[in-house]
Design a protein around this nucleic acid. Structure first.
Lengths: 141, 141
DNA sequence: CTTGACCTTCCAGTGGGTGGAACCCCTACA
DNA sequence: TGTAGGGGTTCCACCCACTGGAAGGTCAAG
């Protein structure tokens, strides 16, 4: 299979696949004309990567997950650990975004959004220093 | 004020403040020894930036927000538009993360996490190609 | 006069790709 | 046989918003 074929089948852009080769995630063979030649196992690995990335795992996580996948003496605890830590990162990010959302949606709701210059959004941004609303707004909730 | 002073007062790292000067967000004066000299207005602007960034606005948003802030003929509608679009980005990101979370927490829950190699997490990652679970898992919910 | 805390610039790297230029290869068709 | 197109290849630069580190200048205190 050429790169275009695995791109279609894995759903990954060719650029990404070349990049994955670059960083050593996949190692296709080369045919005499210099084209990459992908085996079924390469395609399988790329699909694995695509799925893992779509679940938000980092490239580094992917590296470890692939290693575990190929190790039949693995302990599922090791996989679970990676996934659990990732889940915690997701939770933290969601919390952070929800805190932003809470503040922002409040401000947007307050703002008339008309032709006049008066704007509670700008007021909030401008008064953060004086009013001293530290990291609480961002960190909590 | 030197950069360290505004860093302390604004809560931004000195590196970030220099970077903001680099990209033209703030323009401190220079004293004879080459040190940056910040006015109250610079500090104010940096605090504004810090607050806006902590609410997740992009640098580009910040540029526009600052311009609007300094324009007393602005329409609050313009500010509201920036904030609303940002809010939409946040919502989209939250949805994406919650979809990941849903899938992942299910898988983590299913995984024994012991010394044995059997692992539903790896199984999910490995079977995405055959089972054909397209972008639905990521895009929906 | 030295120590240490400041400040300066510049260069490189982060993560995870993406865009584009310049070029090679292969097949189909006139 | 020429050419048009749709593959493929490399390499370099860029995205975002910083961050780290090296190498050096400046200043106040002891």
């Amino acid at each position: 299979m050429n790169i275009g074929d695995v791109a279609r089948m894995s759903g990954l852009p060719t650029k990404t696949i070349r990049y994955y080769e670059d960083i050593g995630l996949v190692s296709p063979l080369r045919s005499t004309n210099g084209y990459r030649t992908f085996r079924d196992s390469d395609l399988h690995k790329l699909a694995f990567l695509g799925r893992a990335r779509s679940l938000g795992f980092t490239i580094d996580d992917c590296r470890n997950l692939i290693a575990l996948y190929g190790d039949d003496t693995r302990a599922s605890a090791d996989v679970k650990k990676i996934a659990s830590e990732h889940l915690e990162r997701i939770d933290a990010k969601v919390d952070e975004l929800l805190a932003m959302k809470k503040t922002l949606s409040h401000l947007v709701h307050e703002c008339a959004g008309d032709h006049r210059p008066d704007c509670p959004i700008l007021e909030d941004l401008a008064t953060s220093l004086d009013e001293e609303t530290p990291k609480a707004t961002v960190a909590n909730l």
